[in-house]
């Protein structure tokens, strides 16, 4: 079951669109930019579509590199600092490639009341990773979310897009062990 935005990092390998002959090929030769172009064409390069375009770009590339940000800035004829300012304002945009696995602990009020902080602390300690970061071995990214709206299942942990309710610190660690094959 994966109904949250947390899986948005998803498939770059999804349906490939054909490259628009009207647009110059990206110098890097990376034809994923064609997917961004498709969106840009649909919205007529409208500047107020910046956030939507960044969403599309992040879906395609997994994260927003300087290269991608600059590409979007040029396409929408916006100053680079403005694009950077907008992208960094919002939580959901990320600028580093995520780890192999992503664990998100909901820290909304209901989950907080039910001990989400302890889950975050234990996962962080056990896997040597700070919230918002990826472990040194690149295996796990730990994030927190401001309420996933599944308060009836508090506390909630999302591992690679799959929501797990009624979690405990030990339960969450076991879950991670199952997915990552134990802490080394």
């Amino acid at each position: 079951m994966s109904d949250t935005a947390l899986e948005a990092g998803a498939s770059a390998s999804g349906s490939r669109h054909t490259v628009d002959p009207g647009r110059p090929e990206h110098p890097s030769g990376d034809d994923r930019f064609a997917l961004v172009d498709t969106h840009l064409r649909r919205v007529h390069d409208a500047q107020d579509q910046l956030i939507e375009t960044l969403h599309v770009a992040q879906d395609v590339f997994g994260f927003l590199s300087d290269d991608v940000l600059l590409y979007v800035a040029r396409a929408l004829r916006l100053p680079p600092s403005m694009v950077y300012g907008v992208a960094t304002f919002y939580h959901l945009f990320t600028f580093e490639p995520p780890g192999e696995h992503t664990c998100t602990v909901c820290t909304g009020t209901a989950c907080f009341v039910k001990g989400a902080d302890d889950i975050v602390a234990d996962v962080a300690t056990a896997h040597g990773v700070h919230v918002g970061d990826t472990s040194a071995d690149g295996r796990l990214t730990l994030r927190t979310a401001r309420c996933l709206g599944s308060c009836g299942l508090a506390p909630v942990v999302v591992l690679d897009g799959v929501v797990h309710g009624h979690q405990s610190p030990s339960g969450a660690l076991a879950l991670l062990d199952g997915e990552l094959g134990g802490v080394r």
């Binding site: 600092s81 694009v83 300012g85 960094t88 304002f89």
Partner: peptide, 20 residues
């Protein structure tokens, strides 16, 4: 020229030039 803008938010807010 719009060289400057504010990046990030809240206590992390900072001024940047271009793409930082």
């Amino acid at each position: 020229a719009h060289v400057w803008d504010v990046a990030h938010r809240g206590h992390g807010a900072e001024l940047v030039t271009d793409l930082h």
